[in-house]
Computed example of a mutant assay.
Amino acid sequence: MTKTLLSALIGKAAPLIPVLHVENPEHAVPLAEALVSAGVMALEVTLRTEAAPEVIARMRKAVPQAIVGAGTVTKPEQLAKVRDAGALFAVSPALTERLALASEKVDIPLVPGAVTPSEMLAAREYGFHELKFFPADLMGGTAMLKHVLPLYPDIRFCPTGGISDGNVMSYLELANCFAAGGAWLAPRDLIEAADWAEINARAKRAVAVVAKG
């Protein structure tokens, strides 16, 4: 079965996906506005907080142009929950048979994680051709992705983990990377401090780095 691709949702927007840890639902809207106004359209709200479904719902309602998804999906039942909250995509750090089968029943694009050649092949056999590569910095980074490109030329990745303005282009320049993500665009401490100006500035810098190439 061919899976809906996250890259199709992102389209021509900047291929940057901040991973957002949001404890306070009141931070949802100003956070989304700070990122989207800087040109960062795809937002991954991690399910590491109980507030995540409400945060997703608030972002989708108040900032409809944002491409809001859910991250750290680790249980099959979470797919329907985040879809019902309004998430447009879901991201998992790994892939299990139960998660893959659940994705067949829930109408939401899933980007599962894979870091070894065996995991990548298994994901492709389940029909996934866009995968999360995490933690990128600990699993070989760009060197690893270069090695697997000739093995799986039809698989593309969104690396996260250790990504920054300093190295994001080294990933995005690879033929098998469709986006890059991480917390550096909107760190947890800045979100909790409600420092929307600094988050906006960070997002603008990252977008400029990508635009410059």
Rank of each mutant, 00 (worst) to 15 (best):
L6Q: 01
A8R: 11
K12M: 11
P15E: 01
L16C: 10
N24S: 10
E26G: 06
S37R: 11
M41V: 13
A42S: 07
L43R: 01
E44G: 00
E44Y: 07
L47S: 00
E50R: 13
A52W: 00
I56R: 01
K61V: 10
P64D: 08
Q65T: 11
V68P: 01
G71T: 03
V73S: 02
K75C: 01
P76I: 07
A80C: 05
K81H: 06
G86D: 04
L88T: 07
A90M: 04
A90N: 04
V91W: 00
P93V: 04
L95V: 08
T96C: 08
A100Q: 03
E104K: 14
A114Y: 03
A114M: 06
E119M: 09
M120T: 12
A123F: 01
E125N: 13
G127H: 09
L131T: 03
L131H: 02
P135D: 05
L138T: 15
A143P: 08
L145A: 03
L145I: 09
K146F: 07
V148K: 05
L149C: 13
P150Y: 13
I155V: 15
F157C: 14
P159G: 15
T160Y: 05
T160V: 15
M169D: 02
Y171H: 06
L172Q: 06
L172Y: 04
E173G: 08
N176W: 15
G182C: 09
W184Q: 11
W184K: 13
L185S: 02
L185R: 05
P187C: 10
D189A: 09
W196C: 12
W196F: 10
A197S: 15
A197H: 13
I199R: 06
A201Y: 08
A201T: 12
A201H: 13
R202P: 10
A203M: 11
A203T: 05
A211L: 14
A211C: 07
K212L: 09
G213W: 06
